[in-house]
Amino acid sequence: MTVSRRRFLEWVAAAGVGTAAASSAKAAHGEFSGYPDSYGVLFDATLCLGCRSCEKACNEVNKLPAPGKPFTDLTVFDEKRRTDYRTFTVVNRYNDTGADKPVYRKIQCNHCLEPACASACFVGAFKKTPEGAVEYDASVCVGCRYCIIACPFNIPAYEYNEALTPRVMKCTLCLPRLREGKLPGCVEACPVEALTFGRRKDLIAIAHEKIRKYPGRYIDHIYGQHEMGGTSWMYLSGVPYTKIDLRTDLGTTPAPEFTSGALAMVPMVIGLWPVLLGGIYKITQRKEKIADAERRQEVANAIAATQGEADAKARAAAEKFQKEKERAVDMAVKKALADADKEKGKEGE
């Protein structure tokens, strides 16, 4: 079998794209339980006082613009807030939790082990760093905001009011500070150490220890241990997690796995569709060719038939003519003979 140059080039192209997509698909199908020594934070909702020191510290450390209401204003708790372009973290108060006092919960990026934002970003602006933080690179971001669609926790915010340099804004786990050996701003500021900072695996052990030591105090579940494939920021609570706005219906499938199946189909389509379509085209062509040939045959037959008919007709006419001619000749001869006889008879008298 000879392979045309074009065919060979098509294969190489398909293989190349296929490998690229397949290898990424494979990575998403594999299991990733976090970089071995990555850090995390454990938030204890039973300790949080709702003092907003963490919000203040975050604002200062990240040099964010001043908020509408000062951080000492506790009336902000009267409504539910979310992160926005100048607020990487907020604390919300929850009154109807079934506990005898309000429960506070700090909201910020959960730095998932397999982040949905990183999976969604088509310029790779998000990276899960070995330190545990999910880092955003504003220098490549195109601003499509697919990451905001993807995040199941509704964390990333966008600078909609920036005309030319809008960025996605979210908690950085104070990665620059971590690299200097310092603590994240919010962790350092919390007066009751409701935020515990450490290696993720240690935090899980700590959390289990707390549940064991104070069984009446905690729900026996560490939120973030497995949710969405695991997050670096985990929560302990004394009230059901749905009461403090932590969704328990997100499942444990890491986000990239939702799309890895669809992406894996790409090389299949690239490989098989040309074969299928090319095949159909060839079949169509062949059908046309056969139809064409049949038609031509028909025409030829028709011509031959007509020709045959015409020939037969001509022959018949010729024969007829011949016969008539002969008869006419016969008749003429007979007449001539008769005339001659007549003549002869007349002369004889």
Binding site: V187, E188, E193, F197, G198, R199, L203, I206, E209
Partner: peptide, 12 residues
């Protein structure tokens, strides 16, 4: 100091 990695049980 808070978060002594060898003993995270004790707060700072």
């Amino acid at each position: 100091k808070p978060f002594d990695q060898s003993n995270l049980q004790i707060p700072g």
